[in-house]
Design a protein around this nucleic acid. Structure first.
Lengths: 251, 251
DNA sequence: CGAAGCGTTGACCATTGTCAAGGCCAGTGG
DNA sequence: CCACTGGCCTTGACAATGGTCAACGCTTCG
């Protein structure tokens, strides 16, 4: 499936530079860059999974179409993400560019050979797969027990954290996807997404920067956003310890 | 995370016997069997992930507790399943026996050493991780866009298929978990689970065998169950091809 | 200027959650 | 042996969250 770039972020924070020869990133470095126009598919659900891709620039959506045109987006891909590692014979989802995007590809054969031979690459790939599973778990928690407001806040919080990690001084989230994409990702309708955002603006949690650019959202109160996300993130690491002791918390 | 035993089923169908030395299963064979009483935890969310477990017998639930006592079950484990492969440093969920259960454990160190050294084990582990990701995707689809009835039917269908694959002549599903467990797994409340099952009985789709044994469910109309699950499984493999062509179907 | 795409808003409705009560069975203690 | 209690499940009445349908505003593009 796809891999978020959390691992990359962590690595960047550590001592190891990104362009070191044993970095996952560098595997793709020599491949030619491919350009995708907005809306252009990278591959379809059901296609034979011949390649692994690295996103260089832009945003892609990863989704499955279920009956009667219902679409479920299982993830978004951004610069640095790798897609196609944890797959067997065929892609089980479609990947499609949301914005104009650049990617590089590697055949599975090449990729696997490189990973098997490299003592330092293997744990990196493994870490990515683990992060991917963890993200899937989080999404399952979100979908199975969070309210619309919690879903939206969790989603925005994730992008806010990303922006902060990238060193942005301003608490501004640049969403490259449409409301419909957000809805299909969060298991909501476009109307509920819209209404919930409006309500959050009313609460003073956030603001849409410019009526013309509704994809740029300024988070006015990050703390409150985290509260409303309902992740208990306010208490940070203490949470796990408490749960391990069989306790409950919040509210 | 955890691995379903689909891979094992497939292997059993193929030529390779299960007790061959290069089988994942055989790795655990020499470990002592540990016994868990119903309700007993195997490990807690947050614990250091030191071991990988194989379930020998019984059923376990894998879950996370989120705020105010809300519990999300992300999976059930049955005989043959392996848990703990796709994890980094700590368990990110709690695993707990539902019924009395038997497990065997292997330290991650041992497990990883064995897998790295074995040419034949590596693809098996990889296949399991892929299956696990695919299962997580399916669950995300279920949670983000299926109705209560579709969820229940999908759930029962999965267990029906398992029973059929095990060679059971009777279309009977033996659920080892409580209604509450089902609810927490399917993102519903216990009342909705109960009502939906009652409604399915009313439609003649299934029947509870004995009022005293509500966990034994006979599927009266497997075809209708599949229909109601809304997975488009009625059309089988054609589905992927159609979607690859950008088409839609069902109804 | 008109049309299309996207987002917002409103009115209404349905599915599901919440709260409360009751049935059934098993286990326990009188 | 029976009554009592607790766990689990079911059922009912009601509320609420979110979905559906429809209209409208804004922007862009021809």
């Amino acid at each position: 499936m796809f891999l978020t770039d959390y691992a990359k972020t962590f690595n960047a924070a550590a001592a190891r530079p990104l362009d070191e020869p044993d970095c996952l990133h560098s595997l793709f470095a020599k491949q030619p860059v491919e350009y995708l126009a907005a809306g252009q598919p990278l591959f379809f659900e059901g296609d034979e999974a011949r390649h692994i891709f690295e996103v260089i620039e832009g945003t892609l959506r990863v989704f499955r179409i279920i009956s009667e045109g219902r679409r479920v987006i299982t993830g978004f891909l951004h610069a640095g993400d790798v897609i196609g590692v944890s797959l067997r014979d065929n892609y089980i989802y479609t990947a499609e560019a949301i914005t104009a995007a650049k990617v590089r590809r590697l055949s599975r054969r090449q990729f696997e050979a490189a990973v098997i031979n490299s003592e330092s690459l293997r744990p990196k790939v493994f870490a990515r797969v683990c992060d991917e599973m963890a993200a899937a778990q989080d999404q399952m928690v979100l979908l199975s027990s969070k309210s619309a407001e919690e879903r939206i806040c969790t989603f925005l919080l994730k992008y806010l954290k990303r922006a902060m990690a990238e060193g942005n001084a301003q608490p501004i989230v640049e969403l490259s996807m449409s409301r419909q994409d957000m809805a299909d990702y969060l298991g909501l309708t476009i109307e509920t997404v819209s209404r919930t955002i409006t309500r959050l603006i009313g609460k003073g949690v956030l603001n849409v920067l410019d009526p013309a650019a509704r994809h740029s959202i300024r988070i006015e109160r990050p703390g409150m956003l985290a509260q409303l996300a309902g992740d208990d993130d306010d208490c940070g690491d203490m949470r796990r310890d408490l749960i391990a002791l069989g306790e409950r918390r919040r509210h």
